[in-house]
């Protein structure tokens, strides 16, 4: 289990939309060993407030040296990160958690919503490099075109077929990713790799269960440490009790989790 605490330099900071930011960080240690679905814990400031690190999925790695995080500004920590400048350093812990289990022998479908798309970019790139003959399908959704369009392009650039959906119909299907997924009529034995808001993951899980598809989901929980020390990051599991999102996950077989059906 290799993990590092590193001061990593911001080599690039891009604004993909009004509140969506992509940061490229220079860290050979982390970039060389990270696998899709893993995450990093980032310090957002230098002082005591905000105190805790923030978790972000690794959304791409390149040249065995750089990795990216992609995030939406939702609160103080992400707002601070959004104001960083290129050349500055961020303290990062990682790579953390266990990622996606990939099966290259079947039809694979990546399903993402909102910022849940971040780890799927890394996964899609990884799959297309390891197995160019079996490219995954990509079904992703967001609120509007502005949020989704740059990410659709990223997937298309690596040669993947993207099926977008937006809440307001400004890009692709007008509605939810689950509807798009249903309309794909995937073959029996297909596998889905899912990350997004809870209701979306639940809908995809229920659909996959009905169809007999395997379904892996990446769970977001609140986290204090990201490395197994605080026991704060739990998710209820089917067999009773809890699993820990930061070391048993964040990626889980959806069948193992106890879902809260509202």
């Amino acid at each position: 289990m290799s993990q590092f605490q590193k001061k990593t330099q911001i080599t690039r900071l891009e604004r993909l939309g009004s509140d969506i930011i992509r940061i490229t960080l220079d860290s050979p240690e982390i970039s060389k060993i990270a696998t899709p679905g893993q995450f990093v814990m980032v310090r957002t400031g230098k002082g005591k407030d905000p105190l805790l690190r923030r978790p972000f999925s690794i959304s791409q790695v390149s040249n065995g040296r750089y990795f990216q995080i992609l995030f939406k500004v939702v609160g103080r920590g992400t707002a601070l990160l959004a104001h960083c400048r290129e050349g500055e350093y961020l303290s990062v812990l990682g790579p953390l958690g266990s990622g996606f289990q990939i099966d290259y022998t079947t039809i694979n479908c990546l399903v993402g919503g909102g910022m849940g798309i971040a780890p799927l970019l890394f996964l899609g790139k990884w799959m297309s490099r390891k197995c160019p003959d079996n490219l995954p399908l990509v079904v992703i959704g967001a609120r509007t075109e502005g949020e989704l369009e740059p990410l659709v392009k990223d997937f298309q650039e690596i040669g993947l077929s993207v099926y977008p959906a937006t809440d307001d119909g400004s890009l692709g299907h007008h509605g939810f990713v689950i509807d798009v997924l249903k309309n794909l009529n995937l073959d029996a034995g297909s596998k889905t790799y899912v990350c997004g808001p809870y209701p979306m993951m639940l809908a995809v899980h229920l659909f996959c269960k009905e169809k007999g598809f395997s379904c892996q989901v990446s769970m977001e929980t609140s986290m204090a440490c990201g490395m197994g020390a605080c026991l704060g990051c739990i998710v209820p599991v089917e067999r009773g009790g809890y699993a820990h999102s930061c070391f048993d996950g964040p990626v889980f077989d959806a069948e193992e989790l106890l879902w809260e059906v509202k």
């Binding site: 105190l51 204090a224 605080c230 009773g240």
Partner: peptide, 18 residues
């Protein structure tokens, strides 16, 4: 012991509750 249900932690000013 299985412990308490989530959420178990929340950040506060210069601290955290668990």
């Amino acid at each position: 012991r299985a412990g308490n249900p989530p959420p178990r932690i929340v950040e506060t000013s210069c601290g955290m509750l668990n």
